[in-house]
């Protein structure tokens, strides 16, 4: 049956080609049902305001980190000889390199800010309480992963600031009794900060932690979807 107008919530589509493409997808994937349930007829509770947006803003910033991170990785070279020169090349010579890397560096800072606001709101409103305790657990896991991503990314430009911050950051856990020195050894991949350290921080920063955090974000959002957004308690 040919439709003249396709109505999707507030959107009205009259273009026959678009209608046919949508209908073909709808027949096979139940697209209309998903869009109606999850987008057009999904009612947000009236008590949601600005302060309820910071989880979503953090997610948006995470997507920004993924996209700009992919772009920075196109020119970055993870070797102790080339790392700093390649970052300088991105900042000074590649067109819009300053913008892409700036968005990545500033985005990481902003992400920490929005996470703190998000956590403060959840804490003050008491929304971490039953039945949402596990969501607090995945949330704190996400905070730790974000800090881990920030820390591992900090070394990659291989500047004096990056180098000594990593010396200090790997020295700190060494103060723990019994296990501390082993943790420092594992983090550095040896006794000193070296190419091995840069390589493992690079692997953590571009692959291991991003994949992990994406999975935990999925879990975090699935929990919200299952339990519904809570109002202030």
């Amino acid at each position: 049956m040919e439709m003249n107008t396709l109505e999707l919530g507030p959107i009205k589509i009259k273009n026959r080609l678009l209608i046919r493409i949508f209908s073909a997808l709808d027949d096979r994937l139940g697209l209309r049902e998903i869009l109606n349930d999850e987008v057009f007829e999904k009612i947000s509770p009236a008590y949601l305001g600005l302060w309820s947006c910071f989880g979503g803003i953090t997610f948006f910033l995470f997507i920004n980190q993924v996209v700009t991170g992919m772009l920075v990785m196109v020119y970055y070279q993870p070797t102790i000889e080339q790392a700093h020169a390649s970052v300088a090349h991105i900042m000074n010579e590649v067109p819009f390199g300053w913008l892409v890397r700036g968005m990545h560096a500033w985005g990481s800072n902003l992400m920490i800010v929005t996470i703190i606001i998000h956590m403060a709101k959840i804490f003050v409103h008491g929304i971490y309480k039953a039945p949402r305790e596990l969501n607090w657990v995945t949330g704190v896991t996400l905070l730790l992963l974000t800090l881990g991503l920030s820390f591992s990314g900090y070394l990659l430009p291989w500047t004096q600031l990056a180098y000594w911050a990593t010396v200090v950051g790997t020295e700190t856990p060494a103060a723990m009794p019994y296990v501390g020195e082993y943790i420092r050894f594992a983090m550095r991949g040896g006794d000193d900060i070296s190419q091995v350290t840069l390589t493992r921080f690079f692997a953590l920063h571009v692959m291991i932690m991003p994949v992990t955090i994406a999975a935990v974000i999925g879990l975090h959002i699935a929990q919200i979807r299952r339990q519904g957004i809570a109002g202030p308690l």
Partner: peptide, 10 residues
């Protein structure tokens, strides 16, 4: 435009 300019090799 910026992403294209960024990615195009020089």
């Amino acid at each position: 435009y910026p992403v294209g300019m960024y990615l195009w090799p020089r």
